[in-house]
């Protein structure tokens, strides 16, 4: 993996930015070769991660800073997405999805992230805030049937 991310975005903790970021992640993951369903779930996971930062990290303030760094993985193919913020830091051990047998609202976002991503790791960020590392690898059927046209259209 390259040391430098292929894409770095700095954004404010404004919920209005969630839709354009989803669209961006969808487009990028299409380039990498993810299926339509995987792209939807990947966009949903990033959206949930950002929403958690906005809601819990920054207490719904819209002026907090969030950094989104993305690496394109080659062997195996996929994406590594790192979100960092300067919001309220929490013990990563306390970040849990809820028991799905207990049907109630709440705690679904973390569950969605964990179920959707190949890897998801929360850690306290040196200097304050949190860092969330998300990795999603192409499924075997996506590797076997790459969306060639889309991949060719993406800058290497």
């Amino acid at each position: 993996m390259d040391r430098e991310p292929c894409i770095s975005i700095r954004l404010f903790s404004d919920p209005k930015l969630l839709a354009p970021i989803r669209a961006f992640v969808d487009g990028l993951s299409k380039c990498v070769g993810f299926s339509e369903k995987s792209r939807g779930l990947l966009s949903l996971a990033v959206d949930e991660a950002l929403a958690n930062v906005i809601r819990h990290g920054y207490g719904e303030r819209s002026d907090g800073l969030i950094w989104l760094n993305i690496w394109r993985l080659q062997e195996p193919a996929g994406l590594r997405i790192v979100l960092e913020d300067l919001g309220r830091s929490v013990d990563p051990a306390l970040i849990k999805g809820r028991d799905l047998a207990d049907v109630r609202p709440g705690g679904l976002g973390v569950h969605i992230i964990k179920e959707t991503m190949t890897e998801s790791t929360w850690e306290s960020r040196p200097g304050g805030g949190m860092r969330l590392t998300l990795v999603k690898l192409l499924a075997p059927h996506e590797r076997a049937n790459p969306s060639t046209t889309q991949s060719e259209n993406c800058a290497k």
Binding site: L44, E48, P105, G106, G109
Partner: peptide
């Protein structure tokens, strides 16, 4: 066309 966990949670509340 899109629903996140807060939307699903809202529908779970409505169902209950």
């Amino acid at each position: 066309s899109y629903m996140d966990s807060s939307g699903i949670a809202t529908l779970v509340e409505a169902l209950q």
